[in-house]
């Protein structure tokens, strides 16, 4: 009887799962397609498209660029976000709210507009398109998230622990490095990895702000013009796979914190 009452819920969740995972399943399954088209019928398992991926010099170089931009921009965003969150504690609430609003504002602006703003501005001062500019764009979009993640883990408790350290004779820097950072490292890592997943497969900013040296999503975009291909599936599966791994890692990091 209990099971029967749950039936509509179970059916709904099953349908929702099917809806959410249908495209992903198609992407992953047909990346192993032993044939030229990533659509049914499935002609058997093959890794040939992954071989093709690895053999694609341009794609591999772009992947290297993606990782480089991702790591550096995420490091910068995490550091800026953490410092800002750290500075928030024990400030007058009105000024905290103001700074928070200012730092979170980029989240409400389209990536496209952020990219165009940077493009026009750098154009005005004579700075050309480059991976560095892409990286700056990625810091702009990730800074609010990194700030929010760090801020959510820094509470009154943290401020008290810092105060205790200072009471025992630590100066600001010592309290920061010896107490705050070690206590917050799961949040810092989480913020870094989240920023990385968002940076490394970001398209619009990379597309508008890079020139010859470009990142993986831009190359995938140009491959898209020639239509569906299992090689695209393989590339997508690979990019998705890395993101998933990082997100699960974050879940583990923050989940552990939550239970302790």
């Amino acid at each position: 009887m209990r099971g029967l009452r749950q039936l509509p819920a179970i059916l709904y969740m099953t349908a929702a799962f099917a809806f959410i995972f249908l495209p992903v399943a198609m992407l992953v399954i047909y990346s192993f397609q032993n044939g030229p088209l990533p659509v049914p019928p499935f002609k058997g398992v093959s890794l040939r498209w992954y071989d093709a991926l690895l053999a694609d010099r341009k794609l591999m170089a772009a992947m290297g660029n993606s990782v480089l931009v991702g790591v550096l921009s995420s490091l910068a965003a995490t550091m800026l976000g953490f410092l800002a969150a750290y500075a928030m504690a024990r400030r007058p609430p009105r000024r905290v709210a103001l700074a928070q609003f200012f730092l979170m504002a980029p989240i409400s602006v389209s990536y496209l507009i952020i990219a165009l703003g940077l493009l026009f501005t750098f154009n005005l001062v004579g700075v050309g398109k480059s991976l560095l500019v892409v990286g700056i764009g990625h810091v702009v979009i990730n800074l609010p998230l990194c700030f929010a993640i760090c801020y959510s883990q820094l509470g009154e408790h943290q401020a008290n622990v810092e105060r205790a350290a200072q009471d025992l004779g630590a100066n600001d820097l010592q309290a920061l490095i010896l107490v705050t950072v070690p206590m917050l490292w799961p949040a810092l890592l989480a913020s870094f990895f989240i920023a990385f997943t968002l940076s490394w497969d970001e398209f619009v900013i990379a597309f508008l702000l890079s020139k010859y040296d470009t990142t993986m999503p831009v190359v995938i975009w140009s491959m898209l013009r020639s239509g569906l291909s299992p090689k695209l599936n393989a590339a997508g599966t690979f990019v998705f796979g890395i993101s998933i791994l990082l997100v699960l890692l974050v879940e583990l990091l923050l989940g552990r914190k939550r239970t302790s």
Binding site: V24, T197, D201, S243
Partner: peptide, 10 residues
């Protein structure tokens, strides 16, 4: 957690 490009392609 995947990008718009890959989701849309899927």
């Amino acid at each position: 957690w995947t990008s718009y490009v890959i989701r849309s392609y899927s």
